[in-house]
Simulated scan of single mutants.
Amino acid sequence: MNSEMLKEGIFNLNTRRFGSVAEVMIRRLCQLGRSKNQFHDLYDDMANHRVEVKFSTVRRTNSRKITEDSVLTCISDELSSNREIKFDEWMQSQFDCNIQQVKRDQFEVLYYGLFFNDKVAIFRIKSDEIGSQIYYSDKQHKGNEGEGQFHLNEKTLQIHLDNYLYKILTYEELFQLLV
């Protein structure tokens, strides 16, 4: 295993396993403890804070809509396309990463971020800071009270970089953290 294999593997993990990798990364990076219950991911014993972890991989938006007529072509296109985006290309790329199922009353601190092709951008925000300034919406699903989402994309990422950036890791640094 090396840092390139690590990155490739991360981009190929299914959602739950990907989330577990992000949790291990944040636990080690921030020296946090395990969760106290199933409603948050980690625990900060020093600050007595419940911690939630939400990450996404960054990929170019695929412009072709999947329809009954295009479904096989769209699947085939995915085999040959590399839609990963490098960190320094984010302003010129169309992407949309949804940080969802955010239940602000279940944690005090949210670590969230983006796995780019070459770097991992990690952000930190307090639950009471999550609001309209990051385009948070509590209208994620009909009937889901107390749960919302916000999007990281080429239009909103600068807000997060300016106000909530915690750290940027290379895949080599991430590899060393996980060894």
Rank of each mutant, 00 (worst) to 15 (best):
N48R: 03
S137T: 12
D45N: 07
I134G: 04
I85N: 02
T73D: 10
Q106R: 12
Q133E: 08
F55G: 01
F123G: 07
I125Q: 06
Y111S: 07
Q101Y: 09
A47S: 12
R59V: 07
L114I: 11
Y136G: 00
Y43N: 04
L29H: 03
R104F: 03
D128K: 06
V71W: 11
V102L: 06
D45W: 10
V102P: 03
D88N: 15
E154R: 00
H40W: 09
D105G: 09
V71E: 10
I130N: 01
F87M: 15
C30W: 09
K139M: 10
F87N: 14
E84W: 14
R60Y: 01
W90L: 15
Q133F: 06
F116N: 04
H40Q: 06
R50Y: 09
S56N: 03
H151L: 11
A121E: 05
F55N: 01
H40A: 06
Y43L: 09
H40V: 07
C74A: 13
D41R: 05
I134W: 04
G146K: 11
R64N: 03
I134R: 04
D69K: 12
T73M: 11
R104M: 10
V51E: 03
K86H: 15
N98R: 13
S127C: 04
C74I: 05
F55Y: 06
S70W: 04
M91A: 15
H49S: 08
C74H: 08
R124E: 15
C74D: 05
D118L: 12
G33N: 09
G143K: 07
S137K: 14
Y136P: 00
Q149V: 10
D77N: 10
F107N: 00
S132P: 00
L42W: 12
D118E: 13
T57S: 13
S70I: 05
D69S: 14
Q38T: 12
F107A: 01
N48W: 01
M46A: 15
Q31V: 09
H141F: 10
